[in-house]
Design a protein around this nucleic acid. Structure first.
Length: 122
RNA sequence: CCAGGGGGCCGGGCAGUCGCGUCGGAGCGUUCGCGCUUCGCCGAGGAAAGUCCGGACUCCAUGAAACAAGGGUGGCGGGUAACGCCCGCCGGACCGUGGCCGACGCUGCGGUUCAGGGACAGUGCCACAGAAAGCAGACCGCCGAUGACGCGAGCCUUUUCAAGGACUUGGCGAACAGGCAAGGAUGAAAGGGUGCGGUAAGAGCGCACCGCGCGGGCAGUAAUGUACGCGGCAUGGCAAACCCCACCCGGAGCAAGGCCGAAUAGGGGCGGCGCGCCGCGAGGCAGGGAUGUUUCAUCCCGAGCACGCCCGGGUUGGCUGCUGGAGCGGGAAAGCGAUUUUUCGCCUAGAGGAAUGGCUGCCCCUCCCGUGGCAGGUCGCUAAGGCGAUACCGCAUGGCGAGGACAGAAUCCGGCUUACAGGCCCCCUGGCAUC
RNA sequence: UGGGGUGUGGCCAAGUGGUAAGGCACCGGUUUUUGGUAUCGGCAUUCGCAGGUUCGAUCCCUGCCACCCCAG
C-alpha cells in the first residue's frame, strides 16, 4: 500500500491490538492481499523506525500468503513495546491476530471523535 | 609490570538457510513499454550524523577588469582543486624545573595555550571606588631654595632708658606666593623598574643594569632575531565596539538540469457553419422586454457551435542526471612534515514512501556463576626441605548463562564538529621490581 | 536542500557590557471570629551547555544541545 487514502480507509476496518503492534484489516475490492506499515515518530529515531519496518515486513512476508485475508489491506501499526521485541513472539502474536480476523472476532473500528460523543440538547 | 598523558588504527570473524534490492545469464509471456520464474555476482559508515566551511557538476545572470554594497578571513612560509582545513616555523601568555647568591628580572629544558594585522586615521567606552580614568592633573603629603611676612640679631637716627627705620640678614618661625610628584590611598589599569648619585624637596635630572623605541648593519624567502649606536621614556587598555588596511567571494541548488508524455476537460489561432438589415468601423435603422398615462422618453437584452486542423501550457507519471572517482590497496623516490611524483594491482551499493532483515552453528571479547589447590602470587605452620589454606589476584576448565557501542547511503568529493562498547600499536612522563 | 527564530525562578516575561525589573503562583507575618480580599516581607551561583575575548559576559565571539517556524 502506498497511498494515504488506503491507510485512512484501513483505519475504518477491523482492528486487533497486540503488545507489539496493532493490526488493521479492510477489504480492498479485488486488489489481492496487500500490506502497509505505520511507524510514527514517537516510536524513536529513524534507525529504530526503519528497523521496526524491516522486521514487520519480514513478518508479513512470512505469514500473509498463508494466513492473510484474501482481497484485504493489512496495516501494522508499531507500538513502543514492539521495539526489539523477540521475533518469535511477534510472529506468534501476528498469527493469533490473523486467526481472530478470520473468525471475525476483531474489535470495532475506532470512530472519529469517539472521545466526545455529541449529545442532543433538550 | 602499573598509572597518567599524547598520537595513529580497528570497530566483531567464518559459515549455513529463508527473504529483499541493483546488475548479468537462461526460460516463459508480452499490449514491445515490460512482466513473471529461476540461477549467479555484489549489496552501508568511521562517523553514512550535524549541515558548519570548501569544491566538482548543472542551470540562470554577466563583454573583460575595476569599483560600490554585503559577507568572510587575518603572524610568516608551505601543502592543496579549494578552504575558516593540514604541516612547519616565528612571537606572546601561563605552568613545572634548573642556573645567574636572594628579590626583581633574564635565561636553559619540558609542557599547555593563543581569532596572533592596525590603538600618533578618526569616533566611542573604561561602571563602583578613587583627588584624578586619559588632557595629564594634584586630595593627603614633601619642601620653603626664590619672593613676600613675622620674630630675633646687626646697622643707622634720636639726649639715656627706650623708641623709630625707604638699611642688612650663613639665625628662628609660620607655610602666603611658589616648587615637587618620592610616599599614602582607590582600582583591572595611575604616564618605565631596581639601585646609587643628586636636591630645599624632588624628578631620566645624571649614571649602571634591565625594559621600551628609533636608526642603519648583519642573519633569514619571510614572520622575526640580533651585536652596535642613538633617543629620551614622550601619547594606558578595549578593534570577538564602530572602524581602517590587506586578501577572498556573481546567484541558486540533483526537488539543479535534460528528454518523453496517452485519454478527458479547459486555453489560443485558422477554417467551416451561423449571427434581422446597412456599414471596414464608430454607429445607424429595425426587433423584444421593463418603467412612467398611448405618441414619446430612458434603461436593458439579443451568437455562438455537441464541427475540423494546428499550437503551446498544466496535473499524475516514466526515462536520464546516477555512480570509474581530486578512487582504493601495496612498493619505490623527494620532503623535517602536510603532501607530491611514479609504478603494480583492483572495480568496490546505487535505493527511490526509499533494498542490508529473520533464524541457526562455531569462534572472539567483557561480565556473572560454578569446579579444580593448581608448577604462579598471598596467608599460616616449619630450622630448612616441605606441608596446609585459598576470601582475593592469577591459571586451567565448565555453563543449552548474560552482554557486544554510536549509529543507516539518497548527486559526488576534501575538511571541521559531535556521538561511540570494546580492542590493538607507537611515543613521552612518573613509580615499582630485576640485571 | 535552503532560510529564520527562541532558550532568564514553578508559569508569563523585561533586561543587550558593570547589584537580573515586573506580574502570576508559592511560603511567612499583619488585618478578620474563620476563609477570601487588602497589605508587608521572602523566594535566581547552571541566565540551555562548553570554551574564549574583556578588569568584568544574560549581553560580544566560536562550537554544541533542545524546541519552534518558513520555502521548494
Amino acid at each position: 500500500m502506498l497511498k494515504r487514502a488506503d491507510f485512512l480507509r484501513a483505519n475504518n476496518g477491523m482492528r486487533v491490538a497486540r503488545p507489539g503492534f496493532i493490526l488493521l484489516a479492510h477489504p480492498n475490492h479485488e486488489q489481492g492481499i496487500r500490506y502497509g506499515i505505520t511507524v510514527t515518530k514517537r516510536i524513536g529515531n529513524a534507525v529504530v523506525r526503519n528497523r521496526m519496518k524491516r522486521r514487520f515486513r519480514e513478518l508479513l512476508w512470512a505469514n500473509l500468503p498463508e494466513l492473510g485475508l484474501p482481497d484485504h489491506d493489512h496495516v501494522l501499526i508499531g507500538r513502543e513495546t514492539g521495539i526489539e521485541r523477540d521475533f518469535a513472539r511477534l510472529q506468534q502474536e501476528l498469527r493469533r491476530a490473523l486467526e481472530k480476523l478470520h473468525r471475525g472476532e476483531a474489535d470495532p473500528p475506532r470512530r472519529r471523535n469517539a472521545s466526545k460523543p455529541r449529545q442532543r440538547r433538550k
